[in-house]
């Protein structure tokens, strides 16, 4: 589910953060299909709960750990429980970013256009998660 370390560290797997388009060819098509299916499943679940119990209850499932759950079981099978645990530890920083995302949307969505509110919220998620990840990684060294 997440970017895998099939053959050890990928080229350029150092401290620098880079985007490499060629990496998209690495995972098999089946992996992309599984990801798409999980996205559909979780979003449908959130949508059904929202219709049946209201948008606030549906909102709970916008931060449902299904995709991580799927990733953990797959990674544990392919690379061992230790690696799966490391992915979960990394996801912790992403969840702290998610809290920031939701707070920013709640604070701004009635004041700003939707696109701006969601863009700033997404940037908040990225900044918070990556900054916390970098800070904790540096402290552990």
């Amino acid at each position: 589910m997440s970017a895998r370390r099939d053959d050890g560290p990928a080229p350029g797997d150092g401290r620098k953060v880079r985007l490499r388009l060629s990496e998209l060819r690495r995972p098999p098509r089946r992996d992309w299909a599984v990801r798409f299916a999980f996205g559909i499943g979780v979003s449908a679940l959130a949508g059904v709960v929202s219709v049946l119990a209201g948008p606030r209850a549906g909102g709970l499932f916008l931060a449902f750990p299904a995709i991580l759950l799927a990733s953990v079981t797959l990674v544990a099978k392919e690379e061992g429980v230790r690696q799966a645990g490391q992915d979960v530890a990394g996801a912790t920083f992403g969840t702290l970013g998610l809290i920031g995302f939701a707070v920013v949307v709640a604070l701004t969505v009635t004041l700003w256009p939707l696109w701006l509110s969601l863009t700033i919220a997404t940037l908040t998620w990225a900044a918070l998660s990556l900054a916390l990840y970098a800070a904790v990684t540096r402290l552990r060294r």
Partner: peptide, 22 residues
């Protein structure tokens, strides 16, 4: 997938993908 280092993969397991769409 495109991002290196791959250690960051875990962070993206908690991305706001479903939230943005919904």
């Amino acid at each position: 997938e495109m991002l290196t280092p791959k250690r960051l993969a875990g962070v993206f397991c908690a991305a706001p993908s479903v939230a943005l769409a919904s």
